[in-house]
Design a protein around this nucleic acid. Structure first.
Length: 673
DNA sequence: GATTTGTGA
């Protein structure tokens, strides 16, 4: 188990013969005796978890039975089953599918939709008997429920199980809950920890069918998990991966972009053409500039080595471009993929021999005092570093170049701060209140900061979901808000819409605001974008502009793909908005809310938006900066938030008010109210 | 004067 990463390799590099602008510092790497093992124990069969179809095609043609016997877990199957039978809560380190004879369903959660769906398909296939997904083995994710009365093993996203828990906090449908990928510590998994733990306890006390809990994780920090689950038993499953040589730089390099380029060409000169390289950077802009530099330099006559295919990979990209990273390069060509942390867990690419890790990541932070979220580039954790390293050792031996020193590595945090400790908690607080739990007293594995919880309650109070911040019960408005799979601010806007007579419009706008941006802004087509969008622009603000775009999109009868292309609209995201919209519409209908349109009376829409989004109101200052009114008043220390709210409402109703109406998700704030 | 890591209901 300790020999997963061997440390071998040559530390002498010489890259000075390459011309790189700005003038490159030679990047020297050290071979150091790092930790002999990373923080991960994984079984290496993930063929069922391929994120994209291309990836699953390289599944070999051997039978399921043969594949099964080759799994590292195979020999330990009986021992494992025995342990599961004997313990009510169990932590499994490693990765496995499971089957268990019992009454009631087995629920297995995954952080991502694709994983839930593809693992369910694989397990259904394993089950045999000519069954298909939806029979004994099924899955439930948003927009898609492929289960039946027969279904005994149900895969679902962690967010989905959380939603189910809100209507049945004892999870009576299930006799076993398996929380997979628990080490990822998504907000949803973290809340589920407390909910399943409580359900197990209450079911036992009430003499109901016992609930078995299995936590599957790839982290070594078992003690933390075990302690939380009343010192339960933990099992290690040994994995199988190939050794990866790890190198550190001799001295620190602040300019990691240049260091990336230099290191790439060092590898490029030495390695055979079919050895692919994966580079981790923090964001779109960085990726595009490094890609540009590598493209230019690789065409330079003085540069030795095969020709290069440069692929970029980040979530905002259109999916057609994303797919291209899976196409193998021709025989005599090297493929280099430059990616954000999307390639860390969500997208798995085979054939990677080399990793270049810049050691940084862009992370979302939440500032409770102002209620604003921001993205900040910061050092990765050691766990993350090992995760990146591991992307090389999947098919064969590989190497990882870390663009930081050994001692910088040791200074890094051991593990990533769980999301729940750095997020806006208003949604979580609302969901817990639906279970009559006050978030301040919830049994978190890692408690979020108290001021973040209080800020969430403050927000819920301003929205009218609760009467005071100490309460554990919701108002009737709050109870309605819980029904929508949305940020509480958006739920509030939807529920106000009826009285403004504009639900038709608001359904669209809220859907567009709750998905990733539908607007693509390719840097080389800036003028085209401006021209083609002109006709959608509304003097009433960006929300109305978005509404106009959506309306035209839904009027396009044929070939919406080319329409999207022509108008630089992200097809994937606008289709997702359409799905969200119909889901929300359905929920409204079930609540008996009538859907009416305000025609061209856009001030109705804007007033309605304000009922939930008033915290984002900002003033435009002379230096063209937007400053939220909340920040201004907090800074001046004059007003309470209640007073602020009244002020904004009063201002809004006047005609020539100086207040700007501005949201975080807007592409170009332009509208004066 | 300029733009956004990644998930999820």
């Amino acid at each position: 188990m300790d020999s997963k990463y061997n440390l071998i390799g040559n530390s002498k590099l010489n890259i000075s013969k390459f011309k790189i602008k700005p003038k490159p510092t030679p990047i020297l790497f050290n071979k150091k005796n790092g930790p002999s093992s990373p923080k991960k124990i994984r079984l290496n069969d993930e063929s069922g978890k391929a994120v994209y179809p291309n990836n699953s095609n390289n599944k070999s043609k051997i039978s399921i039975q043969e594949q099964r016997t080759k799994l590292p877990v195979y020999d330990k199957k009986n021992k494992l089953l025995d342990l599961i039978k004997r313990h009510n809560t169990l932590i499994i380190l490693g990765e496995t599918g499971t089957r268990l004879q019992n009454n009631g369903r087995i629920g297995i959660t995954q952080p991502r939709r694709v994983a839930a769906v593809s693992v369910a398909m694989r397990v259904a296939q394993e089950y045999g008997n000519g069954e298909t997904v939806g029979d004994t083995v099924g899955y439930t994710v948003r927009f898609e429920d492929v289960t039946s009365k027969k279904t005994r093993i149900k895969y679902l996203t962690d967010g989905m199980l959380l939603r189910e828990a809100m209507f049945d906090n004892l999870l009576t449908e299930y006799s076993v809950i398996i929380l997979d990928e628990a080490h990822e510590r998504t907000i949803h998994t973290d809340v589920l920890f407390g909910i399943v733990k409580n359900a197990q306890k209450v079911r036992e006390a009430k003499n109901l069918t016992p609930l078995k809990i299995i936590i599957m994780s790839a982290t070594m920090d078992v003690d933390h998990f075990s302690k939380y689950f009343n010192n339960c038993q933990a099992v290690y499953l040994e994995g199988r991966t190939y050794p990866v040589n790890v190198f550190y730089t001799i001295k620190p390099h602040d300019d990691y972009q240049t260091a990336c380029v230099a290191t790439f060409f060092k590898i490029h000169r030495e390695a055979p053409a079919n050895h692919d390289v994966l580079i981790f950077l923090t964001g779109q802009e960085e990726i595009e500039t490094v890609a540009h530099q590598i493209r230019l330099l690789s065409k330079d006559r003085d540069v030795e080595g095969p020709s290069v295919r440069v692929c970029t990979l980040y979530a905002a990209q259109p999916s057609s471009q994303q797919m291209s990273v899976f196409n193998p390069a021709p025989e005599n060509m090297r493929k280099v993929i430059i990616s954000t942390n999307i390639a860390e867990t969500s997208v798995t690419i085979s054939g990677i021999k080399y990793i270049i890790d810049c050691g940084m990541v862009k992370a979302r932070m939440y500032h409770p005092a102002t209620g604003l979220e921001l993205l900040k580039v910061q050092r990765i954790s050691q766990e993350q570093a090992w995760q990146r390293t591991g992307r090389a050792g999947r098919d064969s031996e590989g190497s990882c170049y870390r663009l930081y020193t050994r001692s910088q590595f040791e200074m890094m945090q051991k593990s990533t701060v769980p999301e729940i400790q750095r997020a806006n908690l208003s949604s979580v607080a609302l969901q817990l209140l639906a279970l009559e739990i006050h978030a301040l007293y919830f049994d978190f594995m890692d408690k979020p900061p108290e001021d973040a919880i209080l800020a969430a309650f403050e927000q819920l109070k301003l929205l009218g979901a609760i009467e005071n911040t100490e309460t554990s019960t919701l108002t009737s408005l709050g109870n309605q808000m819980v029904k929508f799979p949305l940020d509480p601010r958006f739920s509030k806007v939807l529920l106000s819409a009826q009285s403004y007579g504009c639900l038709e419009e608001v359904l669209t706008i809220v859907s567009l605001l709750s998905v990733e941006s539908i607007l693509l802004n390719p840097p080389n087509k800036r003028e085209h974008v401006q021209n083609v969008r002109q006709k959608f622009c509304s003097p009433f603000g960006d929300h109305i502009t978005l509404l106009n775009i959506y309306r035209e999109f839904s009027n396009v009868r044929q070939n919406s793909r080319s329409w999207c292309h022509e108008h630089c609209v992200n097809m994937r995201n606008i289709l997702q908005a359409r799905d969200v919209r119909s889901q929300l519409e359905e929920i409204c209908r079930k609540c008996g809310i009538t859907i009416s349109s305000c025609g061209s009376q856009m001030d109705q829409v804007r007033k309605c938006l304000l009922t939930g989004l008033f915290m984002n109101v900002a003033e435009l200052h002379r230096d063209r900066q937007y400053i939220t009114v909340i920040i201004i008043t907090l800074y001046l220390g004059m007003w309470t938030k209640d007073k602020l709210f009244q002020y904004i409402q009063a201002q809004f109703c006047m005609d020539s008010s100086p207040i700007m109406f501005y949201l975080l998700k807007l592409f170009r704030p332009q509208s004066a109210i």
